[in-house]
């Protein structure tokens, strides 16, 4: 039995026991807590507007923002034509967009919200291959207000086509695709989506609450902040013009900014289908910077199918 203490079997069992206990406390125990978190309106809005997965997935292998739902703002019922006041958000999944993580696994949205979404919202009748429209509805359970996901195609008879037509192009927002741009362009290496509980809320707004993320993937909290927190940026600044200039060249509106230029998100053509001459723009901008001209060159209007549009949609609609 000499040297028993050094034998590798005993040691391996010890390593397993120690690591097992550690994982039991840090993974198994919290899983019960995570499981009981109920989704808020913010959480439902995120899971419905983002689609299944942001980032690499089957439906979007090149991470170009394909297979994502379209979020629309409705001010009248597409079926009856009745006015809806205040306007509500509807989430249109075409045949190519797989259902969001929350709808796919209702327990992700929390035990009660998941149950309500199945019983009242009939989300179990939706499937990946058919177009479907979702809304977020409120209901009263034991005197408390709960939000759940409503399958509007089944419950309200809204077809995807009718909803898109009723809303019109100006009320359609590519939120899921916009968040994809946020992820692929690495915005989250400098901006966080997690105001801190101690100080930040006075400047950057409230930290997220429990239930604000259910069904979101990835959460992209970010950890290395070199720029302002963005979780509520649209509540501080909702100007589309400012966003457009700032994304094209941040130093047009904020001379001391160290943010990269995201002019390449405009693609090849502007809103009128005219080719954008980037080298000319940069030359004119350099003249402006060196003081040769008084005004900076005009920022081209982005095309509706450009990545810039999706990103601005996401910023203005989702980060409030």
């Amino acid at each position: 039995m000499a040297g028993q203490f050094q034998k590798h079997k005993l040691g391996a069992a010890g390593i397993g026991g120690m690591l097992g206990l550690s994982m039991c406390i840090t993974l198994f125990f919290p899983s019960f807590d995570f499981r009981s978190g109920e989704s808020t309106w913010v959480g439902l809005d995120k899971t419905l507007s983002n689609g299944r997965v942001i980032g690499f997935s089957y439906e979007d292998p090149l991470v170009r923002g394909e297979g994502k739902p379209t979020t629309v703002v409705l001010n009248k019922d597409p079926k009856t034509g009745e006015a809806i006041d205040p306007p509500i958000r509807a989430y249109v999944y075409d045949a190519k967009a797989p259902l969001s993580a929350g709808v796919r696994h209702p327990s992700n949205m929390g035990p009660t919200v998941g149950k309500l979404s199945i019983e009242k919202g009939k989300i179990d009748q939706a499937n990946d291959s058919d177009p479907v429209v979702f809304t977020i509805e409120a209901t009263d359970v034991d005197g408390e207000e709960w939000h759940y996901v409503n399958n509007a195609t089944v419950n309200n008879g809204w077809t995807a086509e009718a909803v898109l037509n009723t809303a019109g192009a100006e009320s359609q927002y590519l939120i899921g695709r916009g968040k994809t741009v946020y992820i692929t362009e690495g915005c989250w290496w400098c901006h966080t989506l997690l105001p801190e509980h101690t100080q930040d809320w006075q400047v950057f707004g409230t930290p997220p609450f429990l239930g604000d993320f259910n069904g979101e993937m990835p959460t992209a909290f970010g950890s290395d902040r070199k720029a302002p927190d963005l979780l509520h940026v649209a509540a501080r600044n909702s100007s589309k013009e400012w966003m457009t200039m700032h994304f094209f060249n941040p130093r047009l509106v904020q001379p001391n900014s160290i943010m990269p230029r995201f002019d390449y998100l405009w693609g090849k053509t502007d809103a009128n289908g005219k080719a954008i001459d980037f080298s000319k723009w940069r030359a004119e901008y350099n003249d402006y910077v060196s003081g040769k001209t008084v005004h900076p060159p005009e920022v081209p209007e982005y095309a509706p199918e450009s990545e810039a549009r999706a990103l601005i949609d996401w910023v203005l609609m989702s980060l409030r």
């Binding site: 807590d33 509980h197 809320w201 609450f209 429990l210």
Partner: peptide
């Protein structure tokens, strides 16, 4: 929890 002018149930303590 209270942050600014918002109040929310954000507690995990005790499994349900």
């Amino acid at each position: 929890n209270i942050v600014g002018d918002k109040i929310a149930l954000a507690n995990f303590e005790g499994n349900r």
